[in-house]
Simulated scan of single mutants.
Amino acid sequence: MKAGLASVLLPLLLQGASPVHAYEKGGKHFINWDAHEYPIVSHWNWHRPFPDHGDPPMGFETKCNVVKKFHARSYRLGDLRNGEGHPLYPFSDGIQKYIAGRTYPGSWDGVDHGGMQRDLLMMEWRELPVYVRKWIEDNEMRRPEMDDGRTWRFMVFQKKPKKVAATATETAPLRAVPTEGAESSTWKLPEVADRDKVVFFAPGQLYPILPLFNAKGGGKCEDSFSDLSRYVPVAKDDSVVAWPFEHSKADHENGKVEIYFKIRAEHVLESEHGRDRRVLWDTLMRNARRTERKHLRAEREAGRDSLGMPERDEL
């Protein structure tokens, strides 16, 4: 029974679970070879929800499909030690102090290059979509220190004025000022202009909030993309799925750190055919589990009879 089920499950699982392929309209496939060459962080639980050929997840129809492209600068942790003159120098002490002892969230597809080779992205704060900025402010910058978790967070820093000499200090990321007795949601954020802020993060930190990147200007799906309660890692009826289906790589050896990444978000609805197939599948699995329980019960009773043991109600 188990072997039979495995032969049916495997093709279905492979259809949507591969972490290394991503789709681009026009038939082009993007492959993140790093996912073949390096380990994946142990806590990774995200998998691309789309088939290779770009259709909606199997058994679903698309209410709307939004693809957006973003730009960032990609560094490595080792760049924090490059010293004066490097773009990371003014933030290096603060970043190293803040991530010390925290778990790395992973790079693209959860890849872990290890040690000083781990990826660190930098974006201008004002280039982040408004829904992403709002989420970071509410869930990171206003998050109490005691509830800060043990993984990397989005780190928002104030840029050094151009006329001020850049120095590496232990300046912490910008945080809201706690107000005694008040809810953290009301804590006041530092008054720093958007143009004067940058944000640092690992690529793996994008995955829990991917739909927010595509929400603004998402048309009829702006409301659903901006509501993370609809966002699921595996498609279900009337839900949102998303994935960074393509990204470029920095050329560190030649000092080229500019990269792009594309995020695809979909609001999906279960099709009539998909619903029929799911109901049939659930029925088959329920019957299979019932048959397996009967088989195990029969084996236990046969073993009890062979040992001359009394039935339970005879004890």
Rank of each mutant, 00 (worst) to 15 (best):
M1R: 03
A3L: 08
A3M: 06
A3D: 11
A3Y: 04
G4H: 11
L5T: 11
A6W: 14
L9N: 15
L10I: 05
L12G: 01
L12C: 10
L14N: 08
Q15K: 13
G16S: 11
A17N: 13
V20C: 00
Y23D: 02
K25F: 01
K25P: 15
K28F: 01
F30G: 01
A35H: 03
A35D: 03
Y38V: 04
V41K: 01
S42G: 00
W44G: 00
W46P: 03
H47Q: 02
H47F: 10
R48W: 00
H53I: 13
G54W: 09
E61K: 13
T62M: 02
V66P: 04
V66T: 11
K68L: 06
K69N: 12
R76G: 05
D79M: 06
E84H: 03
G85A: 01
G85E: 09
D93P: 06
I99L: 10
T103P: 02
Y104P: 05
Y104H: 08
G106Y: 03
S107A: 06
W108A: 00
D109E: 12
D109P: 05
G114T: 07
M116T: 14
M116Q: 05
Q117I: 08
D119W: 04
L120C: 03
M122C: 14
E124A: 12
P129H: 03
V132I: 06
R143N: 15
R143H: 07
E145D: 12
G149F: 05
T151G: 08
R153A: 10
M155L: 09
M155V: 01
Q158T: 09
K159A: 05
K159L: 05
K160G: 00
K163L: 04
V164T: 14
T171R: 15
R175P: 02
V177C: 01
V177I: 08
P178D: 01
G181T: 13
G181N: 12
E183C: 00
K188L: 14
V192N: 06
K197A: 03
P203N: 00
G204H: 05
G204Q: 04
G204K: 14
L210G: 04
P211F: 08
G218T: 12
E222W: 08
F225P: 14
F225Y: 11
F225D: 06
D227S: 11
S229M: 06
V232P: 14
V234C: 13
K236T: 11
K236P: 02
S239A: 07
V240T: 15
V241C: 02
A242L: 06
P244Y: 00
E246Q: 10
S248T: 13
A250C: 01
E253V: 13
N254K: 15
G255N: 04
I259D: 03
K262R: 07
E270M: 15
S271P: 07
E272L: 02
D276H: 13
R277Q: 09
V279L: 15
V279I: 15
V279A: 07
W281M: 05
D282V: 05
D282I: 14
M285V: 15
M285T: 13
R289Q: 07
R297F: 01
A298N: 08
R300F: 00
G303D: 04
E314R: 14
L315V: 10
L315N: 14
